[in-house]
């Protein structure tokens, strides 16, 4: 398989990473090399194999419904790019 420059731009947009035409072109070549490597997977028959999404075959541990966290917004917001009145500020959100 081979990615087009447009596909590269599309996934860059999905990932919210600005990409120039020249970068898209260079990236395309690298990605295609990598996908050639990845493509080796198709050689093996995996029919009937259960996908493995975790390194352990265990089940989820659950916590009790207890409030354990205190208000730390002053500390957390001390490292924020832009805050006002306890809110994080971003360019206007249009719904």
């Amino acid at each position: 398989m081979s990615l087009s420059v447009d596909e590269v731009k599309k996934i860059a947009h999905l990932a919210r990473i600005e990409i120039s035409e020249a970068e898209a072109l260079a990236t395309r070549q690298q990605l295609n090399d990598i996908f050639a490597l990845i493509g080796q997977m198709q050689a093996v028959n995996t029919e009937g194999i259960e996908p493995m999404s975790h390194a352990q075959d265990l089940m989820l541990r659950l916590r009790d419904d207890v409030v354990t966290e205190q208000d730390q917004h002053a500390l957390f917001q001390s490292i924020a790019p832009q805050v006002e009145g306890g809110l994080y500020l971003v360019p206007r959100v249009i719904e």
């Binding site: 947009h13 990932a15 919210r16 990473i17 600005e18 990409i19 990236t27 990605l31 990598i34 249009i94």
Partner: peptide, 27 residues
């Protein structure tokens, strides 16, 4: 705007290898 904040922040904040892997992953 907001979309531009995201895509510029991430384009400038991440290096080439990280961006490459994010793109592979998204794909």
């Amino acid at each position: 705007d907001l979309a531009d904040l995201y895509s510029k922040t991430r384009a400038q904040g991440f290096g080439a290898e990280v961006k490459r892997r994010i793109l592979i992953g998204a794909y």
